[in-house]
Design a binder for these strands. Sequence first.
RNA 1: GGAGGCGUCGCCUAGUCAGGUCUAUGGCGCCCGCCUGCUAAGCGGGUUUGGGGCUACAACCCCAUCGAGGGUUCAAAUCCCUCCGCCUCCGCCA
Length: 434
Amino acid sequence: MIDPRVLRDDPARVRASLAKRGLSDEVVDRSLAADSARRAAIAEFEAKRAEQKSMGKLVAQAKGEEKTELLARTKALAAEVKAAEAAQKEAEDTWNECLSSMPNLTAEQTPPGGEEDFALLETVGEIRDFAAEGFAPRDHVELGRMHAAIDLERGAKVSGSRFYFFTGIGARLHRALIAMALDMAHENGFTEVVPPSLVKPRAMEGTGFLGQAADDVYTIEGQDMYLVGTSEVPMAAYHSDEILDAEQLPFRYAAVSPCFRKEAGSHGKDTRGIFRVHWFDKVEMFVYTTLEEAPAEHERLLAWERQFLDALELSYRVIDVAAGDLGLSAFRKFDCEAWIPSQERYREVTSTSNCTDFQTRRLDTRGRFAKEDGGTATGPIATLNGTLCSVNRPIIALLEQHQQADGSVRVPKALQPYLGGLEVLVPVHPAEQA
RNA sequence: GGAGGCGUCGCCUAGUCAGGUCUAUGGCGCCCGCCUGCUAAGCGGGUUUGGGGCUACAACCCCAUCGAGGGUUCAAAUCCCUCCGCCUCCGCCA
């Protein structure tokens, strides 16, 4: 959630941010009203409670008639305290509902508007001209079949649509990419983590995935648990209810986990192949740092994502995602989109978000900061996340971008050590006749 | 799955059976100060977190906080109920 003080002191900023996302600012008025109602209720309860406490002491000392008289008065007071407490709780609940329904603020640089309104930051690498090379590029489904790397038919047979088996070189590629990503993360100072991919509601709510995105979340029947759509969820909740020593920040984690998504709103979209699926594995970077350092850390996360894509010798572009497409938690988001030859367009392969203090406030993660007078004070800290390797999509980009006329695929140099020195993937099945 | 034990302000710990100056004890650690060639020791003070009031978002005052949530009571760390977590033993399965 956003800083309540910002809402109170500068509601115009919150309204502007909501407008940028294309949302109504009606929640601001509701929140402000809830806030003053809440504070009034708190004052009411505290006054009554203080009175009750002081009278309780008198009762303890009083005797005989004096005591019975006091008891009659405190009994009435007790009812008032109880009522005031209930009123306070209700006011707090309303206030919390308002606050938790509100998305994060947005960065100045974040463009207003929806999915199409992104700002293009940079284009990396040339778009390969297959026509000039004299052949039409195959898509990853066909290449996957030729290499016996991706088995979509059996995936559908066993688990349904949007499922698949990686087999043979496909499975090796999967392992190689994860290993390469983790090695890079390790070299860049990240702590490797294998988190649980089943979490309690708190973690899901805290990361903002039970809002509008709830349709996309798999639930466990009768268990009050969720399958995570990204390891951002367990990693954000990892330090919940903790106060971290600000001196030691940043905490950088690289988590590998399966990701599960219902893709409820995307019927008919990207139905071919392994681009949009119900389950995939992913190496995710997750960072806890100070609010001041967060923007610079965000740039670093982007740089590490690019380092990975560059190592795979991929062509891609970097965009500054527009406000309407940020999701609940993000303050600013950069996507890297790889060129997909068969689709003749750029598609998202990685995404990095600066969530500022939005998630840490929801999950009660704070920092302990040194004060000038030698003491310490607690304060908000920031979380950021970034995809290092979403596996499926890099595999698609790699197969398609590095394919050759005969269906073989060039292995980028950095990946070769992870595939036993293999320089070229040679198809095991001949090209299908058109 | 069954039986038992435990959960106190960083760590350890007193208090829970007999509800009321508990405004939660003491130790360790840490911070500030004093003392002191330096350090250590010693001495004095401070040290949960969240919220509200007032304000310079200081100081100060107040409320909540003894795993969480309910209940009993004028009054709950203390009594009752539910839940969560940890430990031990048994069973089951790797």
